[in-house]
Design a protein around this nucleic acid. Structure first.
Lengths: 227, 227
DNA sequence: TTGCATATTCAACGCTTGTTGAATATGCTG
DNA sequence: CAGCATATTCAACAAGCGTTGAATATGCAA
């Protein structure tokens, strides 16, 4: 009703753009590459989405609502099951990450490309501040609030720095660079988000506790001897 | 002797290229932008470095040896001071990360741009596998070997997955996207690598222990209930 | 000063880029 | 069928791209 149903060719454009932007970044992809990959004329992308930048935004927007709804729902589920002290750190991180794995595993094949695109944007000093805030800040602050409840003695700045560690681990996993495959001699496959999350969740949960739990950090700012 | 000393203008080209590549990526920068920023003619980059891709490689190469020497030296120092069981996980991660902060703080101002460029390349599915291996794998495997010694009960795949978590946290910190500044309302500044590392080191050390220490993980692969 | 290697600029090339306006195809409504 | 909105292609544009060969400047050796 409110939005006309998209033509199949415009969806193909989004799919191909998603794949290419995730691999080569915004400037590394031409509209002609996208059009060729989608089997359409180069002018069609302009017709449906306007300028190249608008197409980039459309790709980034497309799956964000569904993605963040599933994460928020997972968090709400844990909160409903938990007592008044709220869900555990593990549960919060599980709700933050597992829906991404599930989308990649059960959703259409474009999800893997989309998650790699999010990784590209999140790690970019140019695009990150310009595009992440609008679509992801509200959700992230919701999770940080939950972490505050689970770690009541945490200092404000420690919570955010720990979140950045979590975000970094997640970002590199979503980028699926294949580097861990090489380093490990094939033992690990970066396409296996499930295996990555099986370690990432206990890893980062222990990290949060070590930095944010009562008595974890002494003194004022630095804790290690400088020499 | 073996290499002629570089002209001051060729260094300026490298400096400007470093800054722009770190911010916009390989395809987001033109040789004309670099030349203009360096105050030279566009043909000079070709004269000194060959093709655009060769210039990109030259920028990436320039500081890598010095960087990794300082990290390896820090590791060797801890190893010399430690008993036969080797340095602690914290010390290993400290040696892996602190030299980057020190380079940015005490070295010339281009170091911050260089580290952001490393973050860009490491997080890129296109450039990562193509460029990281040659310059960084040897060093990384040395650190992983040290971690194996510090965590003798760790499974092989767990060590590598945990390393990826560390690498991801480090990568996002080096990218200095400014996102944590916004999220935290100004409490954290992503340009402050020291503050980031003060949390990253205990955070990731606890993560390694939680996943890789004896008795940390039970059963075969998954540890959490699926529902 | 002359000579020569290195460094730098100049001018231009062929090609690709994003974008546009007009032309055509498609599919639904009457 | 006619009419019309939407979808798609066609052809072309001006601008910018990386790269090159020739021309000029620079700095040191004889």
């Amino acid at each position: 009703m409110s939005k006309r149903s998209p033509s199949p060719k415009s969806e193909r454009i989004l799919d191909v753009a998603e794949e290419l932007f995730a691999l080569h970044g915004y400037d590394g992809v031409t509209l002609r590459q996208i059009a060729t990959g989608a089997g359409v004329d180069v002018a069609l992308a302009n017709y449906h989405f306007g300028k190249k930048l608008d197409l980039f935004r459309a790709v980034f927007d497309r799956r964000s609502v569904e993605l963040n709804q599933s994460r928020l729902q997972a968090l709400r589920q844990f909160q409903a099951e938990a007592g008044p002290q709220g869900p555990s750190v593990e549960q919060i991180i599980e709700a933050f990450t597992r829906p991404l794995e599930i989308a990649q595993r059960d959703g259409d094949s474009g999800w893997a490309n989309y998650l790699a695109l999010v990784a590209y944007i999140n790690n970019s000093p140019y695009w990150g501040p310009k595009m992440m805030t609008k679509l992801f800040d509200k959700l992230v602050l919701e999770f940080i609030e939950a972490l505050r409840t689970a770690l009541p003695d945490a200092r404000e700045e420690d919570i955010f720095w720990c979140y950045q560690n979590l975000s970094g681990s997640l970002t590199l996993a979503l980028a699926r660079t294949g580097r861990i495959d090489k380093l490990s001699g094939g033992t690990c496959r970066s396409s296996d988000l499930g295996a990555a999350f099986d370690r990432m969740i206990p890893f980062t949960a222990a990290g949060f506790r070590a930095v944010c739990q009562k008595g974890a950090r002494t003194g004022t700012t630095r804790k290690k001897r400088s020499r």
